[in-house]
Nucleic acid binder design. Structure first.
Lengths: 165, 165
DNA sequence: AATGAAATCGACCAGCA
DNA sequence: TGCTGGTCGATTTCATT
């Protein structure tokens, strides 16, 4: 199913995907492995591009980004243009994520800004994109992101599929 | 507006939010600062909890997580229960993000699993939650996440608001 | 795949502007 | 408070198994 990952790799991923600001020794102790072995495996996971990057996670609220919104965007259908429009929406400052979906609505954009006026500006930029037909936004009152990560968020059958040969 | 951040802090955030797998020296050179100064500022940003954590970013496709879906969830309204339901949805394996919104739909959940059958199981778990009224899901054909981060994704007025006194 | 030794890098401290 | 330079401990790398 994917590049050979064993249960030790999966445990390492769960650890460092939750917090990589710990010493190798901490990870090694939790898994009863040597520091070198943990380092070796992490390098391998990076080489195989299972770990994409190591990044600092910034608190959006600390920067005053308290206005979160979901915007449905429908477009006039023209062959092959949809993906371009998705990328155009993505380039707008404040847009965090764009999903291109099946269904009556074509795109769903998640935006994060400081003020309602910034959100208005943002939506105007979306509307101004050539091919965009109609938008409809709703405010997000609360987000539940948890401390949940890709590797910690697998279903049981998903975990089995990865570990099985 | 927020804990005093200057333009140097903001530049550091943009650097390490995109890639923290570089040496302090690299960051320092790009900003014409000493290693110690960069270290000092990063520590401060961590102390002030502007940097929440440092984490490894795992490629979902490398783990076979290719089925992404947006699920609208409406609930029977009972005082104060909404937040609990949001948290309950969040605890389901495969659910990545939950938004509680104003509007006719109450929650929007983003899920990421390996197969359509896993998605069916997931949606059944959502429906089984006490208080959940109706769900409606759509497949995501494509995601545009870019390499965009909180600090690199500010609007111009947002940037001004942070840097101004 | 995993180890231990040697080179390199980051964390911390005292002191200074 | 913000920064420097130096020291110590941790991490990375590499030769070896």
């Amino acid at each position: 199913m994917c590049p050979d990952i064993d249960d030790i790799d999966l445990k390492i991923l769960q650890q460092i995907e939750a917090d990589f600001d710990v010493s190798l020794e901490t990870v090694a102790n939790k898994l009863d492995l040597s520091k070198s072995a943990v380092h070796y495996r992490i390098q391998k996971l990076k080489d195989e591009e299972i770990i994409n990057s190591v990044t600092a996670d910034v608190d959006p609220f600390a920067l005053g980004l308290e206005v979160v919104s979901l915007t449905d965007v429908s477009v006039t259908h023209r062959e092959g243009y949809s993906e371009n429009i998705g990328e155009e929406i993505m380039t707008i400052d404040g847009v965090e994520q764009v999903y291109y979906t099946m269904g009556d609505v074509d795109f769903v954009a998640v935006s994060r800004v400081q003020t309602r006026s910034q959100l208005n500006d943002l939506i105007e930029e979306v509307v101004a994109i050539d091919g965009v037909n109609e938008t409809s936004s709703k405010f997000v009152l609360e987000e539940f992101h948890g401390a949940r990560n890709i590797s910690a968020n697998l279903t049981q059958s998903g975990r089995d599929a990865i570990l099985d040969p």
